[in-house]
Design a protein around this nucleic acid. Structure first.
Lengths: 343, 343
DNA sequence: GTGAAAGCGCTAACAA
DNA sequence: TTGTTAGCGCTTTCAC
């Protein structure tokens, strides 16, 4: 494998010109062709490490991912679509994605910038806790660009790309109301996740708008796990079934369906259930779970684009984008004998 | 943020000594303490890009991931566990993971090495096709270290970390046989994946060993998708149900269960079903799907360790490790009224 | 155990 | 448009 000076010699130009060709500098068309031909022949590609080093950057967008134990927060679509979205956006700008697995104790993200491992950070699975908040506040104070995905720290001024969880919660609940259900329970997720809070808010909005009461027993607390959904089902059975339950995520929705079924109650017949996320599981369970689809691909793409913009421009104007979600109707929220529209 | 010469001045040593402290060179304990104190005070960390540049390496292990459309090949556990395993192993050696999303057309992996973006490659989701094979052959010929995960190219001499799919197929089938089933169908995956082929082989081994016949109609061809499982169920119903079906992955297993159910046949009562992978979906569906658990975390860890070893030592002795899998018994393969052991 | 200095392969600024 | 050259912040080698 040749180096740049070989190429320069071969093409009969200076090394600087070779560089210009590969980094989009101003070069005569003929020169460019000569250089590219030489590079092709000699099997030359610029050394990305040297390029980044000379440019004083890393060329990486870091992705903070919670390290094991099992990242039950995410669905496979979440991963593959979000990463694909991020990947597409960064590639267009010659950046790469650096995967950074971090346990909750390892929160010194600023270290990643100081060591020049990353030029910006996309943080997944962040919790709204005081520790997390102060970590991020420190990053922000230092002017280090980072972005949260589907997690809001209200009033923080952090960069955030979120799904319109409130609208999703509203749509889901409204759909149940439109089907004629009146007593509708809500199974929430941990309040440390803003999406859990927003989905609850959407639920409340729809209920209020419809003039439907929310009794204390209608508000159930889960932790986004299937198990907590299962247990919520048992609790609901003990206290008397509502017409419907809206679970703040699919995992709990599936748990609900399983819990109900074990006691002979069938979702989609005896009780309506709707989830959130449109994960694989929502199609796999029986009956198929109605849910709300979240545009992860798009969210990743936007997040990366905006971060790169901050890197290039040097500005740190906080961005905060909210992307629309979509209701997906399946059998779990049908009533007995009712014709339904499948999404 | 300070640089190395600041630290050197502050600690009263040469810059070379500062470097030695941070890269584990020979330094007196007292000197080391002085330097670390200075670095701490001045908030200094070595520039990783410069380090890698000077060392003539990238410091990255690349992970090739199939780019959208939806990576239905993988489960969420596959991702999170495999990546965690890889991440753990590389961190111990100061390496990082570079995520590389590539569509099937973008197969010029050697470019990644020439541009010094990676020092080694872990390739996920590779298919055993002539094109893929020749791409990888070229890499191997150039002495570029890469490793395949759960995919074998027989006789290629590629580095491969695989699950013992044959044993898994054997165990699953044997379990069905032990329960007294005699007519056992197999729903296979694409033959371009060696794990699909090996799972079939395990099935055949167990059937032969038990002296059970494999009729033509017992061998069904799927494509690892839920839909293909669903369609296989319909086909089986048309041609007359066997006692049991072993699906080469969970996704198809779930599809089978759904297909059977829609025609009033209940898995775990009217027919036994078993899958492979121990994905989330296997717990979510109804009845819960028996399956075979694959040690992805461990596979990732081993793959990374072995690759790093090749990088450091410079040797290219091919490695080829096969990790054990485990049967997970759930309701889908029980017979009516039969007590089962849950895994 | 420590210091001095060359060099890694680029970019960027300046000169031509 | 092109060539020249001084860095970028490390590692490495060679003295001491």
């Amino acid at each position: 494998m040749a180096n740049r000076s070989d190429v320069a010699k071969w093409a009969g130009v200076s090394e600087a010109t070779v560089s210009r060709v590969f980094s989009g500098g101003a070069v005569k068309e003929a020169t460019k062709r000569k250089v590219l031909a030489a590079a092709e022949k000699l099997d030359y590609l610029p050394n990305a490490v040297a390029q980044n080093f000379a440019k004083g950057r890393s060329g990486h967008i870091g992705i903070i991912l919670p390290y094991l134990p099992k990242v039950r927060l995410f669905s496979v679509d979440y991963f593959s679509e979000l990463l694909s979205g991020l990947g597409e956006a960064v590639r267009e700008e010659g950046y790469d994605l650096l995967l950074l697995l971090r346990s909750p104790e390892e929160q010194d993200y600023s270290e990643l910038f100081r060591a020049r491992k990353v030029d910006a950070l996309v943080i997944l699975g962040a919790k709204d806790t005081p520790e997390q908040k102060s970590t991020l506040d420190a990053l922000k104070k230092e002017g280090l660009p980072f972005c949260l995905i589907d997690q809001q720290f209200t009033g923080s001024g952090f960069n955030e790309i979120i799904a319109d969880n409130t609208a999703g919660g509203y749509m889901a609940t409204q759909h149940l109301i439109a089907r004629g259900y009146r007593s509708i329970a809500f199974l929430g997720g941990p309040a440390t996740y803003s999406n859990a809070r927003d989905r609850l808010r959407g639920y409340k909005l729809a209920m209020e708008e419809a003039g439907l009461p929310i009794r204390d027993q209608d508000l159930l607390q889960g932790n986004f796990s299937r198990k907590s959904g299962y247990e919520a089902a048992l609790k609901l059975i003990r206290q008397g079934l509502p017409d419907a339950v809206f679970a703040a995520n699919d995992r709990m929705g599936v748990g609900l369906i399983q819990g109900f079924k074990e006691s002979g109650r069938l979702a989609g017949r005896d009780i309506a259930v709707i989830g959130f996320d449109n994960t694989d599981a929502s199609k796999m369970c029986d009956p198929a779970l109605s849910t709300v689809d979240v545009p992860y691909f798009e969210m990743g793409k936007v997040a990366a684009k905006r971060l790169l913009q901050q890197i290039f421009s040097g500005d740190r104007l906080p961005f905060h984008e909210r992307l629309p979600v979509q209701l997906v109707v399946r059998h779990s929220c049908a009533r007995a004998g009712e014709g339904i529209i499948l999404g």
